[in-house]
């Protein structure tokens, strides 16, 4: 007998490896964020103008006390990086909480009530998408002055669209399922149906969206701080670190390479974890 055509099916394992990588990255970031004062070898704000722009450990002439070198003001780069992780995680999580509350409320209402309410929700989403996020966030911070609170509220008010889109569509699906109809028939109140039947069933989709939003918020904070209208100095935000080191990048490229890679790896880790969660929950991509 002759074999004519054989094709292999999907292989497993690779997906779980990448999920684990993501989980480890996020885990390390969370430890850095929570225990920054214990982990940082130096005070991230302490300037030492005698030790400016010391090179990191892989280059010649490094100072063993400063593993990742120092910045243009002689502040320890590793310590600033660890404190920067705290800022990134803090902003990512708080912005996502604000936007999740807004987006889920809007989306669930539209999907659950339908009709005029849903038309209004769709209109709100369209309007929100037409507003340029970076520009408006910059304008708000520029006009009102930079602070962490303002940044979180502004980004939270701008990033709820994906939560709303996903909450709306999944609520619509769940609304039409038999057990929700059964709950209606049993005389449950709207609030009870929403909280007991709908929300638990759309939660897995929303968790996946949340990971994406945390990653997006971290990137946006970095971009705004880079433009000088995000986290106020001397806080060690990674975006701000890149902005402050920009003038030295042609002679000491590592001053922007280090915080950039930290940012990239953290966002990648969150996305890998989100992808893994999506597969684990069996939900489909909703962001395109």
């Amino acid at each position: 007998m002759s074999v004519v055509s054989v094709t292999t099916g999907p292989r497993r394992g690779w997906k779980s490896v990448s999920t684990w990588i993501g989980a480890v990255i996020v885990g390390i970031a969370m430890i850095c964020a929570l225990f920054a004062p214990l982990l940082a070898p130096h005070d991230p704000f302490a300037q030492d103008l005698g030790k400016r722009l010391l090179v990191p450990f892989w280059m010649e002439g490094t100072d063993p006390a400063h593993l990742l070198g120092t910045d243009q003001l002689g502040r320890d780069y590793l310590s600033r990086l660890i404190y920067g992780c705290r800022i990134s995680m803090l902003i990512g999580v708080t912005v996502t909480i604000v936007s999740a509350v807004i987006g889920i409320a809007i989306g669930v209402l539209g999907g659950f009530l339908g009709g005029r309410v849903d038309d209004a929700v769709l209109f709100a989403i369209t309007t929100r998408l037409s507003i340029p996020v970076v520009l408006v966030a910059l304008a708000v911070v520029g006009l009102l002055g930079s602070s962490m609170h303002l940044l979180v509220i502004t980004l939270g008010l701008l990033l709820w669209d994906r939560f709303a889109v996903v909450a709306r569509s999944t609520t619509m699906q769940v609304r039409n399922l038999d057990f929700v109809a059964a709950a209606w028939c049993a005389g449950c109140s709207r609030f009870r149906i929403l909280s007991r039947e709908v929300l638990p069933n759309i939660a897995s989709h929303l968790v996946v969206v949340a990971t994406l939003e945390i990653a997006l918020a971290i990137l946006l904070e970095a971009a705004l701080s880079f433009l000088g209208l995000g986290v106020p100095p001397p806080l060690p935000s990674w975006g701000l670190m890149i902005a402050e080191a920009k003038d030295y990048m042609f002679f000491s490229p590592w001053v922007i390479v280090i915080p950039g890679i930290a940012l990239f790896v953290l966002v990648l880790g969150i996305n890998l974890l989100g992808d893994g969660l999506r597969d684990a929950f069996g939900t489909h991509r909703t962001d395109t």
Binding site: M1, S2, V3, V4, S5, T7, T8, G9
Partner: peptide, 23 residues
């Protein structure tokens, strides 16, 4: 027609169309 979906494994002792060997 050799239009099987991916993942299918096709074997035969012979398959001829107008005398031509399809395998």
């Amino acid at each position: 027609m050799n239009l099987l979906a991916r993942g299918a494994r096709r074997t035969a002792r012979s398959m001829r169309f107008q005398g031509e060997d399809l395998l």
